[in-house]
Amino acid sequence: MSTEHWNARESRAWRGLLDAQRLVRERVERELARETDLSPQDYTVLVALTEAPDGRLRPTDLAAAISWEKSRLSNHTVRMEKRGLVTREGCRDDGRGSVVAVTDAGRAAIRSAAPLHRAHVRKYFIDALTAEQQEALIDISASLIRHVTAAGRAEGRATADSP
Rank of each mutant, 00 (worst) to 15 (best):
L38G: 04
L38M: 09
L38W: 06
S39Y: 02
S39N: 04
Q41R: 15
Q41S: 13
Q41N: 11
Y43R: 11
Y43A: 11
T44W: 06
T44M: 11
T44L: 11
V45P: 01
V45F: 04
V45H: 02
L46N: 03
L46S: 06
V47E: 09
V47N: 04
A48L: 03
L49R: 00
E51W: 04
A52S: 09
P53N: 11
D54Y: 15
D54H: 14
D54F: 13
G55S: 06
R56Y: 02
R56G: 00
L57W: 02
L57H: 01
R58D: 08
R58L: 03
P59W: 01
T60V: 13
D61P: 00
D61Q: 09
L62A: 03
L62D: 02
A64Y: 02
A65Q: 04
I66G: 00
I66E: 02
S67Y: 12
W68G: 02
W68K: 02
K70P: 12
L73D: 00
L73F: 06
L73A: 04
N75C: 05
N75I: 08
N75E: 11
H76N: 09
T77W: 01
T77K: 08
T77H: 02
V78Y: 13
R79C: 05
R79D: 10
R79V: 08
M80Q: 10
M80K: 10
E81Y: 06
E81I: 09
E81T: 15
R83K: 12
G84S: 04
L85Q: 01
L85W: 01
V86I: 15
V86G: 05
V86E: 06
E89I: 15
E89H: 07
G90S: 14
G90L: 11
C91N: 15
C91R: 13
R92N: 11
D93F: 14
D93Q: 13
G95E: 15
R96V: 05
R96K: 12
R96G: 12
R96D: 11
G97K: 06
S98T: 15
V99E: 09
V100T: 13
V100S: 00
V102M: 07
V102C: 08
D104A: 15
A105E: 14
G106N: 05
R107K: 14
A108H: 10
A108T: 07
A109E: 09
A109T: 10
A109K: 03
R111S: 10
S112C: 05
A113M: 07
A114W: 12
P115E: 04
P115S: 07
L116Q: 12
H117M: 07
A119I: 09
V121W: 05
R122P: 02
K123T: 14
Y124M: 09
Y124W: 14
Y124A: 08
I126W: 10
D127Q: 13
D127H: 13
D127N: 14
